[in-house]
Simulated assay, not measured.
Amino acid sequence: MDPEERRSLILTAARQAFASQPYDKVSMTAIAAQAQASEALVHKYYASKASLYAEVLAAAATELSQRTQAADAALPAGSSNRDRVRIWLMTYLDFVAERSAGWEAYQLLAGHGPSEASAVRHHMRQETVAALANVIGGQQGAREQAAFWGYTGFVDTVCLRWVEDGCPEDQRHSLIDAALGCLEGALGDWRG
């Protein structure tokens, strides 16, 4: 098998394993079996479970970013900043609901998992803050930075509660409105 094909099979097996179980319950042995490879071969491509997990997280972040950009681009020209952030939230909720078990485990692992996963998390949040700053515009002082960083924490916290409740569809719009209100209250002005 071509090395890239093998790597892809391992990554797919890891993605499935981490999406359905907490990090500490996933074994390299199980990933190897799912990828129809030996554990030694998996270690040839990924030195550790932590590095494999970080790659899975980075791939998920890229997928979410692409989906968010596509949803944003599909909005009518001249859509408000609030509408743009709303569609980002809707996209995020779809993403979370599709992989709720793994997403929940990832959130609960925060601060206690491998440093590679923490680095991916931090990078993802930096990207979200930069995207918000780009959409909202205006002067980016301490208040805006606090609002953007606080918003990312708020969204993940309320999404965790939503996942614990089973991602009920009837809570979706309340969650979105609360998150938008959180950001608006922290900013004091949407600037358009």
Results as ranks from 00 to 15, higher is better:
Glu39Val: 09
Glu98Ile: 02
Glu98Phe: 04
Ala133Ile: 01
Tyr151Cys: 09
Asp156Pro: 00
Glu55Phe: 04
Thr157Asn: 11
Val96Ala: 15
Asp177Leu: 11
Leu132Phe: 11
Leu180Pro: 02
Trp190Met: 04
Asp24Thr: 13
Lys25Leu: 14
Ser48Asp: 07
Thr91His: 11
Asp177Ala: 14
Gln66Tyr: 01
Leu187Asp: 04
Gly188Pro: 07
Val120Pro: 00
Thr152Cys: 15
Val158Ala: 05
Ala37Val: 10
Glu104Ile: 01
Gln66Gly: 06
Ser65Val: 00
Val85Tyr: 03
Asp72Cys: 05
Leu9Thr: 06
Val26Ser: 12
Leu64Asn: 06
Val42Met: 03
Leu187Ser: 08
Val96His: 04
Leu132Asp: 05
Ala142Thr: 12
Ser79Ile: 02
Cys167Thr: 11
Glu5Asn: 13
Glu169Tyr: 08
Leu41His: 05
Gly113His: 04
Arg99Lys: 10
Ala60Gln: 08
Met1Val: 11
Phe95Cys: 01
Ala71Gly: 08
Asp83Pro: 02
Leu41Phe: 03
Pro168Cys: 08
His122Gly: 00
Leu52Arg: 01
Asp72Leu: 15
Arg15Ala: 13
Cys182Gln: 10
Thr152Asp: 09
Gly181His: 12
Ala70Thr: 11
Tyr106Thr: 07
Phe18Tyr: 10
Arg7Gly: 01
Val163Asn: 09
Met28Thr: 15
Arg161Asp: 14
Gln66Cys: 03
Gly138Asn: 08
Tyr53Arg: 14
Leu109Cys: 05
Ile136Val: 15
Thr68Leu: 11
Arg7Asn: 05
Ile176Lys: 04
Ala101Glu: 11
Ser115His: 08
Val120Arg: 00
Tyr23Cys: 03
Asp170Cys: 04
Ala110Glu: 12
Gly113Trp: 02
Ala35Glu: 08
Leu108Ala: 12
Ala131Leu: 15
Leu93Glu: 07
Ala19Arg: 12
Gln66His: 08
Ala61Glu: 04
